[in-house]
Simulated assay, not measured.
Amino acid sequence: MVADELARRACAERGLAPPDDVLPMHLLTIPETDIADLGSIIAAALAHSPAARSLLADLEREQHIPETAVRDYYDRNRDRFLTPEALRRGVDPYDDPAPADIQPYEDVHDGIARELRHAAARRAFFDWLDRAREDVEYAEGHEHPGDPTHQDHEHRH
C-alpha cells in the first residue's frame, strides 16, 4: 500500500494520467523469475499498483541506451544469439562458432536495446523507491516485515 501511494504521488508529480480506479482490481501476474530479480516488495507493488506500473513505464521511456552498450552486450553474450539451426546441431557457443551460426547484430539489435532499457528502468525504479521511502514513518507495530531499517524486521503481522 505504501509503494502504491508513493507511486501515485510520483505519477502526479510527473503529470502522468492517474490510474483508472473505476475498473475492477486487476492483478498482474509476475513470472517467478521476475520476482527473484525484482524482490517480493517491488513485485507485489507492480502486481497490485497501476500507478507503480505507470511509473515504471515512464522510467523506461526515459532510458537512453548508447549504441556502444548494445554492441558490447552482443559481443559479450554471443551464446544468446545462436541461430536455431546452430542450436539444433548442438553448436557449442563457447567453442568459437562459425559466423553463420550467430544471428546477425542487425537482426537482434532492437531486442537487445529493449532488454537493456527494461533493465535500466527497473534499476531506476528501485532507486526511486529507495529514495521515496526514506521519509516514510510507519506507525509502531505496522512496519513492513521486510524493512531492514526496523529493528525487528523479521517479525510477522
Rank of each mutant, 00 (worst) to 15 (best):
R78T: 08
R78I: 11
D79N: 13
D79I: 05
F81R: 05
F81M: 08
L82F: 05
L82T: 06
T83Q: 07
T83F: 04
P84T: 06
P84A: 15
P84Y: 10
P84W: 11
P84K: 13
E85H: 06
E85P: 00
E85A: 13
E85S: 14
A86I: 05
A86K: 04
A86W: 04
L87A: 12
L87V: 11
R89V: 02
R89W: 03
G90E: 01
G90M: 02
G90K: 04
V91S: 03
V91G: 02
D92H: 08
D92E: 09
D92R: 06
P93I: 04
Y94E: 12
Y94R: 15
D95Y: 03
D95T: 08
D95F: 07
D96R: 10
D96T: 10
D96H: 15
P97G: 07
A98H: 12
A98G: 12
P99I: 13
P99R: 11
P99T: 14
A100K: 15
A100T: 14
D101N: 13
I102D: 08
I102Y: 03
P104S: 15
P104R: 11
Y105R: 15
E106P: 04
E106K: 15
D107Q: 15
D107H: 10
H109G: 02
D110W: 05
D110E: 15
G111D: 09
G111F: 03
G111M: 03
I112K: 00
A113P: 00
A113L: 04
A113M: 03
R114P: 01
R114Q: 10
R114C: 06
E115H: 14
E115P: 01
L116I: 08
R117A: 12
R117V: 08
R117N: 01
H118W: 09
H118I: 09
H118E: 08
H118P: 01
A119G: 06
A119R: 14
A120N: 02
A120R: 05
A120M: 07
A121G: 11
R122W: 15
R122D: 03
R122Q: 14
R123M: 07
R123Q: 15
R123E: 12
A124I: 10
A124K: 04
A124H: 04
A124F: 02
F125T: 01
F126Q: 11
F126N: 01
F126M: 06
F126G: 01
D127W: 01
D127G: 02
W128D: 00
W128L: 03
W128T: 00
L129D: 00
L129I: 02
L129P: 00
L129M: 09
R131K: 09
A132G: 04
R133M: 15
R133K: 13
R133E: 09
R133P: 00
R133W: 03
E134I: 07
D135I: 07
D135W: 11
V136I: 15
V136H: 05
V136S: 05
E137P: 01
E137C: 12
Y138Q: 08
Y138W: 13
Y138F: 15
Y138I: 07
E140H: 09
E140N: 11
G141S: 06
G141H: 09
G141A: 05
G141Q: 11
G141R: 05
H142K: 10
H144M: 03
P145S: 02
D147G: 04
D147F: 02
D147K: 02
P148I: 10
P148F: 12
T149F: 10
T149H: 13
T149V: 11
H150S: 14
H150I: 01
H150K: 10
Q151K: 08
Q151N: 12
Q151W: 14
D152E: 09
D152L: 13
H153V: 04
